[in-house]
Design a protein around this nucleic acid. Structure first.
Lengths: 348, 348
DNA sequence: CTGAAAGCGCTAACAT
DNA sequence: ATGTTAGCGCTTTCAG
């Protein structure tokens, strides 16, 4: 049973409730938010009246005095990139569980948008989760002084972060390819500003050296399906027999292009993606990929942020804790034995 | 050049700026929000000081007095359902363009969560976009009295809404199947509470009668990939040669199950999805589907909501305008000629 | 064109 | 245990 809606206009306030019960507003406030500090009888009368009148607290007024908004903000570069879906869900559910609301902002891959939001948000959110930030280390560190921040996949001193450990998994992927007989492999890099891409490339280089296989970097490519066609064409100018793609979006785009050009995956070329996004398991062929625990990352980031907010409230020093989430290789059907003949002889 | 951050703690307020310039706070307020009502010289001095000090307005304080929060809320049943991605993006970008922030809430397919949010949100958001609401007509109408609401795919008197016209496209899909020789077809229904599913079924029934083909409904099914396996098995107990699925998620799930059971699509069975979500074009085989203009729906809903908010502020009567967005059949590779032999003889 | 003062809804001392 | 009072940061009468 929903209480009767407040008459057309003015909303029900705490003083309406106070008047109805015949007490001071402070008593109502206490009864509602610090039940221990009023008599049980009073609490019940107040709660009854509040329900009766359809009273709901005004979060703005509360925020103004308390200095916290009970809302967190998730800044992501592109809401349509499925990689972030899990992040959104994880952050959303955890925020809700902790009694916070989640604001979602799409920065459209623009560092400038990111920076201006961080300035404006200052007062309207209690903390920010920054996914795949395009900001410089200095900008990030500066922002973190003013506002609790947790980054995802970005390692800046003094700024807590969740790191999805794809470099380690990328090495597993390389091992996998080497075990299948591949000796010449390409890494299709992400945006030049991507910290993850650089990290992964470095890890791959070392592993390639250890295995004694040839590894080359192509790109950078935008992390999109459209760019996948370009990545596919780039790889076809080389003689590699396998490609490690910056992410699944790029790999899926490439898969389509390979099909167009008559390149059969994995017979002619093996393809490895990254992230295990929605679709990676039902594309054609299903993608061997690095399964990033994205939703977990969203939850963990939220908890770290909440802890960081708490710490600030207590006046403790800021922390720069980093949480590293393991990522594992998931083998599906886009990788297979290296072709016997050299790749340059492939029909194309 | 970012202004120097405010010293560790207290945020810069309008009175800090006023003190710096040596004027009253009201002057600063006017200079910043009603530039016309202050001398140009004064405006410049104030703006300079504000930048100097790193002043940003406190939206909470402003909301409190203005009675609007400059934020809209998008309530969706499941953030991980790719159908909503476009909606999120459309609503997000349009909100931003109009100077509003977007709050995202996942109701987890629960009507109760939806209802309680509508109550609480009352004061913290200026309006709500309700996608695929699980609420009853009465509940919706009641909520719309208290708060500007726009629904998506839900037709309730007095509540403005955006209707993605899938029934019309479903009829196109039926025509398509009939033209391919299918005479016995199944509709794999969505949740019983889904208004869209019911509407579509009704439109299909009429069209089937017109064509003189047999149409049966199976389900209801959850709108998920998992449920797709159940839907696939259900369809295999019948002799239909084609299935129209409630949405792409369900269809993609079914595609996987068909592959497992050796049913070749479209040779043995034609499959039609709905929504054209991310993945519909690269699953195996690519899905014939009804391409819903989802991102547009998000933008349109946002604009309608803003208009509705405006109308309320002006004291005009509430409107119940409905915007219908055309949806078209997109033919890909999951539909083909009806098998010559009857489906019950299919290898399985 | 600018200043003084009141007040949005709520909470937190400080009384009693 | 409850009432009184002040004030969070801002906008807006109302004066001048």
């Amino acid at each position: 049973m929903r209480p009767p809606a407040a008459s057309a206009h003015r909303a029900v306030t705490i003083s309406d409730v106070a008047a109805a019960v015949g007490v001071a507003t402070s008593t109502v406030s206490r009864a509602l938010s610090q039940p221990g500090r009023v008599s049980e009888a009073m609490r019940q009368r107040v709660v009854a009246a509040a329900n009766e009148l359809g009273y709901y607290p005004n979060p703005q007024a509360r925020s103004l005095i308390l200095g916290r908004t009970q809302s967190l903000t998730l800044l992501i570069p592109d809401v349509t990139n499925p990689f972030y879906f899990g992040l959104i869900r994880g952050a959303q559910s955890q925020s809700k569980a902790r009694g916070y609301r989640l604001l979602l902002v799409d920065t459209e891959e623009l560092g400038g948008v990111e920076a201006s939001y961080l300035d404006e948000l200052h007062k309207s959110t209690d903390g920010v989760i920054l996914a795949a930030s395009r900001l410089s280390d200095d900008e990030l560190a500066a922002a973190a002084v003013r506002l609790p921040i947790v980054t995802i996949n970005r390692d800046v001193a003094g700024v807590p972060s969740v790191i999805i450990d794809t470099p380690a998994a990328a090495v597993q992927a390389l091992d996998h390819l080497v075990s299948l007989g591949h000796t010449s492999i390409a890494y299709l890099a992400g945006p030049a500003t991507s910290w993850s891409s650089r990290k992964r490339w470095r890890a791959l280089q070392q592993a390639a050296k250890r295995h004694g296989v040839a590894l080359q970097q192509l790109g950078p490519f935008a992390p999109t399906r459209q760019a996948g066609a370009a990545a596919a064409d780039a790889i076809l100018t080389t003689t590699v027999t396998a490609g490690l793609f910056f992410n699944d979006l790029l790999a899926i785009g490439a898969l389509g292009r390979f099909a167009e050009r008559g390149v059969v995956v994995p017979r002619d070329l093996s393809v490895v993606g990254c992230d295990d996004i929605f679709g990676a398991d039902f594309c054609n062929p299903p993608l061997t990929t690095l399964a990033a625990p994205v939703e977990q990352a969203g939850r963990v980031a939220t908890d770290m942020l909440l802890r960081s907010i708490q710490r600030r409230a207590d006046g403790s020093a800021a922390d720069g804790h980093h949480e590293r989430l393991a990522t594992y290789l998931t083998i599906r059907e886009s990788t297979g034995a290296a072709p016997a003949s050299t790749r340059s002889e492939r029909p194309a």
